[in-house]
């Protein structure tokens, strides 16, 4: 399966990366990672470097894209343009109370992508 993981620099993105790598190893998925500019809190190049390091370590051959502009829309368009079977995104952050807060990117992708979306918990 052709899988596109979209992630910013937040912990739920890196959790999604681990899950996606696990599955890619087991199922032989063809994995691509899109690093998104989601927040001022994270530098895209630093996130990309961290992701690359993790992918090298895991030994899974993976293409990395860095997307600029509206993250949700860019991710959905890339998935359609390149015929991905599935988009994977992180499951959101938790509030102090422990409530799941879906971010703007997750909301946009879930509602607007024509590709099937997996939300990693």
């Amino acid at each position: 399966m052709k899988v596109l993981l979209g992630m910013g620099g937040s912990p739920d993105g890196f959790d999604a990366l681990e899950e996606t790598l696990d599955r890619a190893r087991q199922a032989g998925d063809d994995l691509t990672v899109a690093v998104l500019d989601t927040s001022e809190d994270y530098d895209v190049d630093e996130v990309e470097a961290k992701v690359r390091e993790r992918l090298d370590e895991a030994g899974v051959e993976t293409e990395i894209h860095t997307l600029s502009g509206h993250p949700g829309s860019q991710l959905s368009q890339l998935a359609e343009r390149e015929g991905f079977d599935r988009i994977v995104i992180g499951g959101g952050q938790r509030s102090p109370m422990g409530k799941i807060e879906l971010g703007e990117v997750a909301e946009f992708v879930l509602l607007n992508a024509d590709t099937t979306v997996t939300l990693v918990r």
Binding site: R94, S95, M97, G98, K99, I100, E101
Partner: peptide, 10 residues
């Protein structure tokens, strides 16, 4: 569990 909201309570 049907009364949970936004993932809580577990």
């Amino acid at each position: 569990p049907a009364d949970r909201a936004q993932g809580i309570p577990p």
